[in-house]
Amino acid sequence: MEFLINFIISWLPIFAIYGILSISLNLEIGYTGMANFGKVAFYAIGAYLSAALTMSVMLSLVGKSVPLYSIEAVQALSTPGTGAIYTHPAAYVGLFVLSLVLAFIVAGVVGYFITYPTLRVGPAFLGITVLAFGEMFRVFMRNYEPLGSTKGLFGLNNPFIWIGNPQLSQGLFALVSLALLLAIYIYAERFVNSPLGRTLRAIKDDEVAALCLGKHVPRVKATVFFIASGMAGVAGVLWTFYQGSVQPDTFVPILTFYVWAMVILGGMGNNLGALLGAAVFTLVDRVLTFAAGMMGPSLIIPPNYLRWMIVGIVIVLVLLFRPEGIRPAKPIKTPAWEAVKEVSEGG
């Protein structure tokens, strides 16, 4: 029981993070048909933004002016009991919330402007441009000293760490993550079951025809990109606070395709499917890590490689043998149906 609870509270935030990422990717590829090969960029923006913001404000609260990446900063922030994240709980939680909001906006705006110019060149080029952007961001971070270059930033922790009881604080964080995931899921469901969702499907089917029917296709696409990138930014914030640190090499392109695998397995164009995909992969990952711990070096393929091989092969096999995924795309639900019934009954 104890084990199960610990397992769940350590798994839930990861599930929430990947759930948010896959819902956001599903909005893009499943509903609108935009191939985002650079999801990781917006995730990284959220993560770095929250780390930089929270750390610098917390440090200035305790009157320290040291570089964020310095060991002094880590000590000033996270020495148990005396570090700033223990002594200024209100500010710390406040910064967590502020990070969520800002990350949504900043990642969203970047997403809007990165994609707007490229939206007319077809999915392959869009995908490549965003992929390139993500790589560029990572390489920049690797070389940008104020944010720790290759080592990244350390010294944060769970936003409720000051409570003292680790199980309680982690549980609280798990709940907050889950609540965010739920909110985003509900938002996404409403978003796509609307006249706008209809337009998105139309754009996915045939963007040229949609344009000829008066839809401002580039703007609609950029808007979806704004929202989806903002969501990825939120996931990035959760990651920072879950992990307590950010490193540039977390945000390798392959992470994007991890999320792709989730969406493809779950079913493109189905939000619940995206969640299922996220759950499956994050659980498999846990099991693999666990098995690796049990079996040690006797494992034929190291778990880290095995995990990615599974990701790759799942993408290929699902596309080959069950292209609609676990849960096929759902038709759009709007009140139009009810209206049709009324007309039928009336006439």
Binding site: R190, S194, P195, R198, A202, D205, D206, A210, L213, A336
Partner: peptide
Amino acid sequence: RLFPSLTVLENVLLTPPNQIGEKPLYAV
């Protein structure tokens, strides 16, 4: 060029411009 993932009704409903529910803020 009809939209295969939409029903006949939805294909028709798509066409009116400037629907309120098409605005990103109002869609939800």
